[in-house]
Design a binder for these strands. Structure first.
Lengths: 227, 227
DNA sequence: GCGATATTTCGATCGTCATCGAAATATTCC
DNA sequence: GGAATATTTCGATGACGATCGAAATATCGC
């Protein structure tokens, strides 16, 4: 038996691998902090079970806990966690879905947050427009000089984004559309800008976001995109 | 109970999370195909147990099987799998190691492959030199125009690399050095070039590689790097 | 302070799955 | 063909951990 030391990714994977914990992580992928009770119901387990799972998620460093009165809010610990979950999702075989989509899923497939960037049909169509306009390019979705210019035009501090350890822009597989949307620091900045300007607003209780009239207008003015 | 459908990353994580399977995957991160028996001994389990694990790895799409006589060689299915494992490793808490490193580990910490690119002290020092020479830049290790030129100079087809879906260049945390080394399509191409020119050669049975005299010379001539 | 709500701790139960040895199958070498 | 090696299948065992209800703790609203 050899005893070559290896980095221990097994323990992290075990933590993520439990169905209840995975549901909680998926809920937290919306990017918002959620209380324990909400996470319990999302995972369909008792409060007691949820509590034990949550403390494990915290002690393994995947999730952070913040107390606010009698509630305790949980949140993904970092963008690294979101990226790891995303890379696992990419590996997961996408089940073929022929069924009609239920009302509850409608909003989610139209537009939602994927941790800190935009996903769903809206995310995909915005990304396609960025490509068509030459603001991002190539299969790696690299930001072009014209793309940087555009970002500055919508008040995004590109220099600040480039200083981060994070990749500036990259594709992220959209599970409902089965196509890529834009992720990375630029993707996050764009979604953040859209939220700040109230082009999109979060719908409570889910990861879904709603496109406002102002947003429709903003997308048309800044990208020539008609939604 | 809500039944909003979510992508199923739990099942993939479960597969990765078992210690025996994780050991096998870690061994396969070396980038080479290995036979079942070898993987059984790396994971310190019986041949029967290994066989069951391996078929699960194959059916979940993480690993591919190729038969060659009475052997069966296993290999990571794609760079996506390697990237997912890497992102999990980044999340795994690195244990503080104060111990003297045993001989068996020496070669591994000096230079090894991390799936398809170079890691270890050599990987880190080459990466640092690329940064100092301005061939890659920023905390995202983006390839610069001068970097592309340098790659063409060592017979790497940059256009081909850019056409891939993969990120051209990005950092990857080195678990033995606790610093980043270069990964992505460019990192893979450089390691591949070094192997092809026999600047480095694989040491059998491990992920370790050895720097040849020719390699020392090549690194000096192409990068001015004295190892 | 008191009832209501949110969360955690405790203790017990139960199912799943990793594990192995033995036997079966496949392939090579001579 | 027959012995040796590589791998898989089968069946049985055992351990870990996910689960819950009940009780404990903490906070809020009044």
């Amino acid at each position: 038996m050899r005893t070559v030391p290896e980095p221990d990714f097994a323990s992290v994977a075990t933590v993520i691998g439990d169905p209840a914990r995975a549901s909680m992580l998926a809920a937290l992928m919306g990017g918002e902090a959620l209380p324990a009770g909400e996470l319990a119901s999302r995972a369909a387990v008792s409060a007691a079970t949820a509590s034990s799972h949550l403390s494990r998620l915290v002690s393994s460093g995947l999730v952070t806990r913040r107390r606010s009165g009698r509630h305790r809010f949980y949140e993904l610990a970092s963008a690294d966690v979101a990226e790891a979950l995303e890379s696992l999702t990419r590996l997961a075989a996408m089940p073929a879905r022929a069924e009609v989509e239920p009302e509850s899923r409608r909003a989610l497939t139209f537009a939602r947050t994927c941790y800190d960037h935009l996903a769903g049909r809206l995310g995909v169509v915005v990304t396609r427009t960025l490509l068509e306009r030459g603001l991002i390019a190539g299969s790696g979705y690299a930001t072009t000089p014209r793309g940087e210019e555009w970002m500055r035009g919508v008040a995004i501090d590109v220099g600040h984004l480039k200083a981060q350890r994070r990749t500036l822009s990259r594709p992220c597989l959209d599970w409902s559309e089965r196509r890529d949307h834009l992720a990375g620091a630029a993707g996050a900045a764009i979604a953040s800008m859209m939220l700040a300007r109230r082009w999109i607003v979060r719908m409570d209780g889910t990861r879904a976001v709603r496109l406002t009239v102002r947003g429709r207008d903003g997308l048309y003015r800044s990208l020539g995109l008609e939604v």
